[in-house]
Design a protein around this nucleic acid. Structure first.
Length: 410
DNA sequence: AAGACGGGGCC
DNA sequence: GGCCCAGTCTT
């Protein structure tokens, strides 16, 4: 079945036809009154600065308010104005975003900051088309900035809006499809408060976060339950409809914790593009599932066969047996025969579309050993780690090292 | 239109 | 440990 634009407009009108005009205005009044009473006190709501609103909206993409608050405060003190962001060194940018995820967000923000400096005289543009021309700002964020910062009646359709409105109007379209966003924009456009679109859009966000939640909506406390078509039927959690599942592909690595006689550890910098671009990790040796599981068996499940305590230090038995399992990879690194590893632990990390299994292997190396890899490598003492940007999997590995007292603190 | 791109919370 | 959350860019 082909869906034309006219077809879509028809469906939008059908959803809206469930409410009378009086109901729409009463709904707006009730909603704004609720927001006036219950709005959350958030750092970016204490100022009317488009820059602060922009930063907060980018951070809040795929990230919860509670997580964002400390990052936001630090970011605003590090980069007080658009010009500070435009001129910041990349290392400082990554450090500011370290642990937040989706790192292209902050890279794009700097590109946009430069756009604002050169094309818009250092001020956030007010026209929504101009706002959306900025790197990293799409239909949601442009609507959020236009409405919240400039009080323009623009929809800002994110997951909260689709959840709230799918329940309010019993919209059963699949929200995993990109085209469905237009349907919600059409509906919001016709019910948004013209007088206070800023509060209206923020009210949806607060309602979606605290009351109209994904799995257990608190309808008893909802100011909109009288209007909610799904609530009337008692099947709120059937909405929104989302098909299309994402599968996570497993990947297996041996993480090399190489330590030289000065206590420095070898770090590699990931390539600029792709997953975790430009972040630092221990060298990761890609291995097959079979090899990984074989080593995991020997190292983790039956450690006693391979480990013994010797003068307070772990020593590794049958080294040859396990390292031969990935000697091909070690050969490529140019360290075969020199690397006598012992197991420290295992770390897993789930991304949106991938699952990493990291088996940590510790070993000593002579200082200034050069690994034969394309990526930049550095030997760094753990006390210097705080100046390096580490993604979560690396942070988890550092925790393992701390727990095993291989490094102190974290 | 589909895939790439992190990380956290809940049960 | 499995399931939920989900904006923008790239292809």
């Amino acid at each position: 079945m082909k869906k034309t634009k006219e077809d879509r407009d028809t469906r939008i009108q059908e959803y809206l036809s469930q409410w009378t005009e009086e109901e729409v205005s009463q709904f707006q009044a009730d909603f704004l009154a609720w927001y006036d009473q219950h709005q959350r006190d958030l750092p970016w709501r204490r100022r009317q600065d488009p820059y602060a609103i922009w930063v907060s909206e980018i951070m809040l993409q795929q990230t919860q308010v509670k997580t964002v608050i400390p990052y936001f405060n630090r970011f605003m003190s590090w980069f007080e104005e658009v010009s500070d962001l435009a001129e910041a060194p990349e290392e400082k940018l990554l450090k500011a975003w370290e642990g937040l995820g989706y790192y292209s967000r902050v890279r794009n923000m700097q590109v946009a900051a430069k756009q604002i400096m050169t094309e818009f005289s250092g001020e956030m543009p007010t026209d929504i088309k101009d706002i959306q021309s900025l790197k990293g700002i799409g239909p949601y964020t442009s609507g959020a900035i236009a409405s919240i910062a400039f009080n323009q009646p623009e929809p800002a359709v994110d997951g909260n809006v689709m959840r709230v409105f799918s329940r309010l109007f019993k919209i059963t379209e699949d929200i995993s499809k990109p085209a469905t966003r237009h349907v919600f924009e059409g509906v919001v456009r016709q019910v948004i408060s013209q007088k206070d679109p800023s509060s209206f859009n923020q009210a949806i966000m607060d309602l979606g976060a605290s009351i109209c939640t994904p799995t257990k909506p608190v309808c008893e406390a909802c100011p909109l339950s009288a209007y909610c078509e799904a609530f009337k039927e008692g099947n709120m959690t059937d909405y929104p409809v989302k098909l299309g599942k994402v599968k996570t592909i497993p990947e297996y690595y041996i993480a090399l914790v190489l330590i030289d006689e000065n206590g420095k550890m070898c770090l590699t910098r990931r390539k600029k593009h792709g997953l975790l671009g430009n972040f630092w990790t221990f060298p990761l040796v890609s291995v097959s599932k079979e090899i990984y599981q074989e080593m995991q068996q020997q190292w983790v499940s039956e450690p006693k066969t391979y480990l013994e305590k010797e003068q307070g230090q772990l020593s590794f038995l049958n080294v040859a047996e396990t390292t031969t399992l990935f000697e091909e990879q070690l050969e490529q690194l140019g360290i075969e025969g020199q690397f006598k590893p012992w197991p420290i632990g295992e770390v897993t990390h789930v991304f949106s579309h991938r699952k990493w299994h990291l088996l940590m292997a510790q070993g000593t190396m002579l200082s200034n050993q050069v690994l034969d890899v394309e990526e930049e490598t550095q030997w760094v003492h753990p006390k210097e780690f705080s100046t390096y940007a580490f993604p979560k999997p690396q942070q988890k590995m550092l925790e393992v090292l701390t727990k095993n007292k291989i490094i102190s603190n974290g």
